[in-house]
Amino acid sequence: MSSLLAVVGGILLVGGTAFLLFGAIGLVRMPDAYNRLQAGTKTTTLGTLLSLAGVACLHPEWALKLLLIGIFLLFTNPLSSQVLARAAHRIGVKKAPQTVVDRLEEDLAEKDLGARP
């Protein structure tokens, strides 16, 4: 019974760290800052959550504290990415040549024209 739980925990751990690895590959391969951020955020969130779940299976007495770390990450990780994306857009980080549309830039340009008489 306990060895079955240990194997499940190990598999969760490997799955989680595999997602971390894919995210890091995306971080290297993606063409611009925004797409890198996408790769970096989603995979690290799920990857870390799965790893924490795996460790909780291997060491059940740590489950509460691991849950706390998981909840904390689930909320802070997307927040920090949003702040980073906003900062990158505000300082005008270049977008990849494949980019098809940027509504935010259009709206900001429109507001600038409206402000100037």
């Binding site: 995306g26 799920l46 980019t99 098809v100 549309v101 940027d102």
Partner: peptide, 21 residues
């Protein structure tokens, strides 16, 4: 995550990025 993994691992990197409202 699965979709992103598929994009990252495919050699041609099939993305069409943009910012929508």
């Amino acid at each position: 995550n699965l979709r992103l993994t598929a994009i990252v691992l495919s050699p041609s990197l099939p993305i069409r990025p943009g910012i929508v409202k």
